[in-house]
């Protein structure tokens, strides 16, 4: 149990919760505010991470140019997906999004010359070299650690990720309070009624999809920097469903419910990481890995049963027709 009492382990859990916050915030914009059933959120995370890594390693770009462009690329991915599929009915759109995210993952796996293929980013450069994309990032992190006197690089990363997350949460919160955000909520409630009030609902849905995708792209950047290496397998559809669980845990249509849901989810997920006590020790360790997912699922099921509106959600909004 010693690892559970180590500060760096919990700092790591906190960093991941921060990254999930940004990923799930994108989903909150898309589904919680605009009603778009996006089951392919992880694709935009992959586009963000890969665009940055490829530009840095293959093109020799500065991280500080590559990162914004990676976010733009993720947003462009959202626009591309939306232009072709947003006119579909909600359930068909949902199917297209999950297909889109798998297409992105398969392309990343098979376009070896572009992405390094299944070996991941280590194979981005010429054969025989182990490529790194986060040299500049590590130096920046070191400077931040020195400037603020953080005790470890884990603590530094925790501070950076959550600072960015809080800024993005605040911006989203402000955006949703504008008349623009009001139109989004109207579309979520009743798209036809919004159209009959003169709102170009397609344009709004496209914007929500692209903005949510940009947020996922930012999450992808931090994912890449935190782990210093990634491969297509990191962007399984499961990650999208983690973001959905966070949304359901926290509550729909509430910006500040996202970090709450992400933190609770992060701790449940981390807390079930080492089930090295009875009765779990009766199982082999590879079986325990699956047992863990079952237990996480059960805990979330229980929480949603007890509080169907989520931890910060509004129960009245669920019953109004």
């Amino acid at each position: 149990m010693s690892i559970l009492s180590s500060g760096s382990f919990w700092a790591f859990v906190g960093v991941v919760a921060g990254i999930y916050t940004i990923l799930a915030l994108g989903l909150q914009v898309q589904f919680g505010f605009a009603g778009l059933l996006n089951f392919g959120q992880v694709a935009f995370m992959a586009i963000g991470a890969y665009t940055m890594a490829i530009l840095v390693v293959k093109e020799g770009w500065s991280t500080w140019l590559a990162a914004p462009l990676a976010v733009v690329a993720a947003a462009a991915g959202g626009l591309f997906l939306g232009l072709f599929s947003l006119r579909l009915r909600a359930d068909y759109f949902a199917i297209v999004t999950i297909a889109f995210s798998e297409i992105v993952r398969y392309v990343a796996t098979n376009e070896t010359s572009l992405t390094g293929g299944s070996q991941g980013t280590i194979a981005l450069g010429p054969i025989g070299t182990a490529s790194q994309y986060n040299g500049q990032w590590s130096r920046f992190e070191g400077r931040v650690q020195h400037a603020f006197g953080f005790s470890s690089s884990d603590a530094t990363m925790l501070a950076i990720v959550w600072t960015v997350a809080v800024v993005l949460l605040a911006l989203t919160w402000l955006a949703m309070r504008t008349p623009w955000g009001r139109v989004l909520r109207a579309i979520r409630d009743d798209e036809d009624a919004a159209a009959s009030l003169g709102k170009n609902t397609f344009a709004y849905k496209l914007q929500a999809l692209a903005l949510g995708a940009a947020l996922a792209g930012i999450a992808g950047l931090f994912y890449a920097w935190e782990f210093s290496f990634f491969s297509p397998d990191d962007f399984q559809p499961l990650l999208t469903f983690f973001a959905w669980m966070i949304l359901l845990l926290g509550g729909l249509g509430r910006v500040w419910a996202v970090p709450v849901g992400a933190t609770v989810f992060g701790f449940i997920f981390a807390g079930t990481r080492f089930l090295n006590f009875a009765p779990f020790t009766w199982f082999a360790s590879d079986q325990r890995a699956y047992l863990r997912l079952i237990i996480v699922g059960l805990i979330i099921l229980l929480l949603v049963l007890v509080r169907p509106q989520g931890l910060l959600g509004n129960k009245r909004e669920m019953v109004l027709e």
């Binding site: 008349p179 009001r182 139109v183 909520r185 109207a186 979520r188 409630d189 009743d190 036809d192 009624a193 919004a194 009959s196 009030l197 709102k199 909004e317 109004l320 027709e321």
Partner: peptide, 19 residues
């Protein structure tokens, strides 16, 4: 308008008008 008034149920009366 619609036969069954399509008000936006999960928004306030005021927000319905502001839209």
């Amino acid at each position: 308008t619609y036969q069954a008034a399509r008000v936006l149920t999960r928004m306030t009366v005021l927000d319905n008008l502001l839209l």
